[in-house]
């Protein structure tokens, strides 16, 4: 976390030195700061910072991709003349156990194709998910477990 601060500070120094505080210049300074930090990563111990940043970034990219896909899926479902949907509620056994991770997982599930989180059981072991297509619940559970849950565990542990 402090390395992120150093990164932002270096970018601010770059904007101050180059004398123009525009968005593009700040982004360029940020990239430069990342490059500088990656040069001295052995000395300041920022190896973990880079691998974690890469994993958070890959979670973010997966999220954007899934959001676009889900909006598209909803659009095709809604606009097809004969809607034959098989909605249902699936109980999903959670592997993550911290409140923070459950929150992120529930939010991501809501914004991804065909699923909507409804409730968490009181002992925080089961997430109830409403699925637009619940004809194959095992496949839906497998998708969540291998997609988001694994990525979240990689990024925040």
């Amino acid at each position: 976390m402090s390395l992120l601060l150093v990164n932002v500070l270096l970018a601010l120094v770059w904007t101050a030195v180059s004398g123009s505080f525009s968005f593009l210049n700040f982004a360029f300074g940020f990239v430069l700061a990342i490059f500088a930090l990656s040069l001295i990563r052995e000395q300041v111990g920022s190896v973990g910072y880079f691998s974690r940043a890469r994993r958070v970034l890959s979670l973010f990219l997966l999220f954007i991709y899934e959001l676009v896909l889900s909006a598209w899926r909803v659009a095709t479902t809604v606009l097809s003349p004969r809607m034959d949907i098989k909605p249902g509620i699936i109980a999903y056994p959670l592997k993550v156990d911290r409140d923070f991770e459950i929150t992120i997982l529930a939010n991501l599930i809501t914004l991804t194709p065909g699923t909507l989180s409804i409730d968490v059981s009181d002992d925080r072991r089961i997430l109830y998910v409403h699925a637009m297509d619940a004809s194959d619940p095992e496949a839906t559970k497998r998708d969540i477990a291998e997609g988001f849950e694994r990525k979240i565990m990689e990024a925040f542990r």
């Binding site: 098989k86 909605p87 249902g88 699936i90 809501t110 909507l116 989180s117 409730d119």
Partner: peptide
């Protein structure tokens, strides 16, 4: 957006608004 829809779904399920008859399963 997900938080508000999640809250609304949870509240209406707890109160007892049921799923549509075309639903195939209900683990809750």
């Amino acid at each position: 957006a997900p938080v508000s829809s999640h809250l609304l779904a949870k509240a209406s399920y707890a109160v007892g608004y049921r799923l549509h008859s075309s639903s195939v399963m209900d683990d809750m």
